[in-house]
Design a protein around this nucleic acid. Sequence first.
DNA 1: ATGGGTGTGTAGTAAATACTACACACATGC
DNA 2: GCATGTGTGTAGTATTTACTACACACCCAT
Lengths: 120, 120
Amino acid sequence: MPKPITFGQFLRESRESKVAADRGFSLRKVAERVGIEPSYLSKIERDEQPPPGEGVIRQLAVELSEDPDVLLAMAGKVSSDLLAIIRSRPRLFADLIRQLKNLPDHAVLRLVREVRDGSW
Amino acid sequence: MPKPITFGQFLRESRESKVAADRGFSLRKVAERVGIEPSYLSKIERDEQPPPGEGVIRQLAVELSEDPDVLLAMAGKVSSDLLAIIRSRPRLFADLIRQLKNLPDHAVLRLVREVRDGSW
DNA sequence: ATGGGTGTGTAGTAAATACTACACACATGC
DNA sequence: GCATGTGTGTAGTATTTACTACACACCCAT
């Protein structure tokens, strides 16, 4: 297994990869746009503090052009809209997700596409 | 819509439906088997306190022979094993679940069965 | 009338969550 | 050499989560 990258590391790398080309990606600037204190973001990026709440993570995803679901996953969370969908039909979705647990990506992707393309 | 039943109401009804036939389903006895204080269970059943944590909910499900996923959903939660599955492949599962959001039950059920019966 | 069982009221606590506010030290450009 | 911008250190706070401990009042059976 490739060593698991932490939420903070990922954020820092994403941000630093952009700050060279655009000075608007300094820690302070990003923190301001996101709406949090710079010191807070600093601690998060160094994994000194646990990841922030969903709202802040979503803002960070926007600012850094990252996938919100991936960022949330790294933070040990799952998007609240997905939770709501599952809660609306718990048995159905619980069964399905557990069935899919060990299926390879391509098989699940096939499902996604079939559903989307409406062969239903 | 039929008025939404609360977590506490559901628990109380489930327990009281059993206590007539089996005195082991008194609030105190159930609380003891579950491993919580009777006063705590009392407050939960009357929705005076928010629902307990996942572990206690699972114990309640066992004692009352209810579906854990349904009970968790009523408590506004989602089973932690499902969360772990989603977090392991966030983009894949996020896409899939959002696709299925508005599909009728029978269509999702068909998916579940097809996957289970391994036409894959 | 008392002992065991019932549910409930009151009062608390420990830990986690999600942050803020401000000061500090360093660097860099003008 | 001073302002401006950089990241970081320290010290806190409010809210939520997840409960415990114990006392009280009622019922009913012996």
